[in-house]
Design a binder for these strands. Structure first.
Lengths: 207, 207
DNA sequence: ACGGCGGTCAACCGATCGGTTGATGCGCCG
DNA sequence: CGGCGCATCAACCGATCGGTTGACCGCCGT
């Protein structure tokens, strides 16, 4: 089984090399610290499974790299292995074509089995991740509308309600209505808390 | 040289074991995933250097663990090895008694040399971290005081002025005074904008 | 066709925030 | 020693925000 590692932390890459080197059925055929390097290496080495971190340091992030990998002819399986477990991260990764989503905090055995499952094309999720997905399914009320995300982005740049209204060509009253909905969906009570909650859930991105 | 690892990611611990195992002068005498486990292990094994992550998953964080380690009789050197590089993280770690601050994204050689330097009691900083500190020194006009950063962190969690005051055992009036200074230093006009500005400048980090 | 949902708007009120002025005490440094 | 920066507190005011209620319209799916 040919593996390719994408992670911007040399320590983590070395760790995976050491861990996976002990498994006789696995062979690491390449590594990359960034997105562009990963795409070059993967087209050249044609691995079976790519272990992908989402935070890559350089501009392009792991989700985008995953999407481009899956657009290659006869693409490898992409197994996300990262620290974070926000709804938005998971959904975006799956949407981009990831075969699975594991956390770095998971026990090594779960990692080994996950890689083998991913190589067979099976979807594999960390138990914590699976739990979160289930909760989300059961409560679809927490999904923000596109308009609400638009409001959140202006909120995050520190604009007042008046300015947000002006930029979106709506009235201040409408902005406040949206805000009430956003607070309710995010489970917060103030605009500032809404911004941090949205950033944590990767609903929006700070520039 | 006796080393002790504290990191909640099994993958990272395995990576460090593999990396450092190749260095003849280094020996890993113990590991821990959480704070309490770390304190027990360190008192038992008496390492020379502790490699400490700041995010430990369980309640107690790496800064607090570092502080308690340094309060032990004849304490080991604590070298922080983490993903983040915010001013607040760095300052709090140093203040807690850390000997140095390295990033997981640093090249392995820098890690090896850093550990040897830490064992000799020398202060060691990643180049990125050192650069940030220098910039901070050169432009003290925009440097926030420790108290102001403290306010910012509560601000970022969405607390109102009253709650911030209560938590810091000061009055609301004082909080507002700090906020005016913070706005001025960050060049913003609202609390929400202050949070995003602080996050962008890595003065604080969202949880 | 009807209901549900998302988006829009209005008017209102209390609570909070932003900003000002002015003041005190503390530690540090030239 | 005399400043200077930092932290602390007070009182005040207008502006803004948070929250409510109620309403209208258009789209979509059963």
């Amino acid at each position: 089984m040919r593996l390719f590692l994408v992670d911007d932390h040399p320590v983590v890459r070395a760790g995976l090399v050491a861990l996976l080197g002990g498994e006789p059925d696995m062979e690491i055929v390449g590594e990359a610290a960034g997105g562009a390097e990963a795409l070059r290496g993967i087209t050249a080495r044609e691995p079976d499974v790519v272990l992908m971190d989402l935070q890559l340091g350089d501009g392009i992030d792991g989700v985008e790299v995953t999407r481009r990998i899956r657009e290659l002819p006869s693409p490898p399986q992409v197994l996300v292995l990262t620290t974070y477990e926000s709804d938005a991260d998971i959904m975006r990764a799956i949407d981009a074509g990831a075969t699975g989503y594991l956390l770095k905090a998971c026990p090594p055995d779960e990692l080994f089995q996950g890689i083998r499952a991913a190589a067979r094309g099976e979807t594999v999720l960390s138990t914590k991740v699976a739990t979160r997905m289930m909760k989300r399914m059961r409560d679809p009320g927490t999904a923000l509308s596109a308009r609400e995300v638009e409001i959140l982005e202006l909120l995050a740049s520190g604009e007042g309600n008046r300015e947000i209204a002006r930029r979106l060509f709506i009235t201040e009253a409408t902005v406040k209505t949206h805000l009430v909905h956003i607070y309710s969906k995010l489970g917060v009570e103030t605009r500032t808390a809404a911004v941090t909650a949205a950033v944590e859930r990767r609903l929006i991105r700070l520039p």
